[in-house]
Amino acid sequence: MKTLYTSLVACVFGVGALAAMPAAADNTSNAQKASQKSAAKKDSKLMSTSKKCPPGNLHRSRCMIELLLEDLTANYGGVGGGGISSIKAASSTSYIVSLPQEERIDLLTYEFEVTADGSVSVKSKVASTQDVGRPSLTDNGVKK
């Protein structure tokens, strides 16, 4: 399962800002995952946009990523952050987009529907947050 998960890591775009960082999500601790899950909520805006894609996994994944980028451009409200730090496949039909902000990383998980005729559409989008650990402090505030 782990091999399959790793093999589905997103393709790297030619655009530098979209460089995928698979290690980031692979190294996410269980605690962080639990934290992400607790903060997750369904986005109310479900999209109906779909794309007809040529056969093959490369084209299918390209279509999924194009769809999520279009949605991000139209709907992501976070401004002032560090842009996109990774787009990572979480399964063969879902991608997680990481958008670093001060104190946190916004995560958007897109789930896609793929039909037999090759059309790809966004099935759902879930927003969550990865806490970027504030260091533990002793009673007098000095770093442990």
Binding site: G77, G80, E102, E103, I105, V132, R134, P135, K143
Partner: peptide, 22 residues
């Protein structure tokens, strides 16, 4: 023009006024 800061890690631009929302 941007760095990921938190309450005990800052960058040299963190004292500037930047857009955080709309």
């Amino acid at each position: 023009n941007w760095f990921g800061s938190h309450s005990t890690l800052y960058d040299s631009l963190d004292t500037r006024s930047v857009q955080k929302g709309t």
